[in-house]
Computed example of a mutant assay.
Amino acid sequence: MHSSVVELLVQRDDSREVLRLKGREAWTLASLIEVGEGGLTPLERPAPRWSAYVHTLRKRGLAIDTVEEHHAGPYPGAHGRYVLRAPLTVLKVVTAEDKRRSGRADAVRSARRNDHSAGYAPDSVS
């Protein structure tokens, strides 16, 4: 899956419920699906507010574990690794590029529609 996912449509395999996600929630879930059983940490895929996005996905009913991992170094401590446990089927993925292409096409259609509705008609060739 591409890292610029902006919309995601998935179906839960356990309940057959369809979830439509947008923005960072879509990106977060796409990231978790992409990495699979190994999960990931915000250090591996930086983004602001990872915990908030995971919290939102959990509120939508998705099982996501936080596995505590300890690390050494000059600032020893622990961090969380998020692992998606919910079985899902991806139905549709929309990337930022898809949106840009769609937006350009919509703008062209809109401009043509506005030109015709304003009484504009291309000059006829005699």
Rank of each mutant, 00 (worst) to 15 (best):
R101P: 03
L29W: 02
A118W: 09
G23T: 12
L91T: 04
V90C: 00
P87D: 11
P76S: 14
L8A: 06
A118Y: 06
L40V: 09
L29A: 04
T41Q: 02
R16Y: 11
V93Y: 10
L40S: 02
R45W: 09
V90K: 04
R104W: 10
R85V: 09
L8S: 03
W27F: 07
E7L: 15
A63T: 04
H2P: 11
H55T: 12
H55N: 06
Y53K: 05
G61S: 08
Y75Q: 12
P76E: 10
V90D: 02
A121L: 15
V5Y: 04
L8K: 05
A30Y: 02
R12P: 00
R85N: 05
V108N: 03
S15Q: 07
P74Y: 15
R12N: 07
S15D: 05
D14P: 01
Y53D: 03
T41N: 01
K59D: 13
E97D: 08
M1C: 00
T56P: 01
P48K: 11
P74F: 12
H70G: 10
Y82R: 01
L8T: 00
Y75S: 12
V90A: 02
H55P: 02
S102E: 13
R100E: 15
S117Y: 05
H79A: 06
L62S: 05
L57H: 03
R60S: 10
A86L: 01
V5T: 00
E34L: 13
I64Y: 04
E37M: 07
L9Y: 11
S110C: 08
T56C: 07
L21M: 05
M1D: 01
L21W: 02
D123H: 14
S3L: 13
T28P: 00
R81I: 04
A78R: 08
R60A: 13
W50I: 04
I33C: 07
G77E: 07
K59C: 11
L40A: 08
A86S: 13
A52P: 03
A107M: 08
T28L: 03
G80T: 00
P42K: 04
G119F: 04
L88V: 04
L19Y: 00
M1N: 03
D123L: 15
K92C: 12
K92T: 09
R81K: 11
G38A: 11
V108D: 14
H70W: 06
A52S: 11
V54K: 00
K99N: 11
R113E: 14
V35C: 07
H70L: 12
P46W: 15
L91P: 02
K22R: 15
L29V: 08
R49G: 10
Y82F: 09
A121Y: 15
S31G: 07
A72Y: 05
P76A: 09
S117M: 14
Y53R: 03
D13K: 15
G23E: 11
M1K: 00
A72W: 05
L88F: 02
L57C: 08
G77M: 10
P74C: 10
K99W: 12
L19K: 02
D123K: 14
D65K: 06
P42A: 03
A96C: 05
R45P: 06
E37T: 01
G23A: 13
H79Q: 12
E97T: 04
D65E: 13
K59Y: 09
P48E: 14
P122K: 10
R49F: 12
E68H: 10
S3W: 12
L84V: 04
R101C: 13
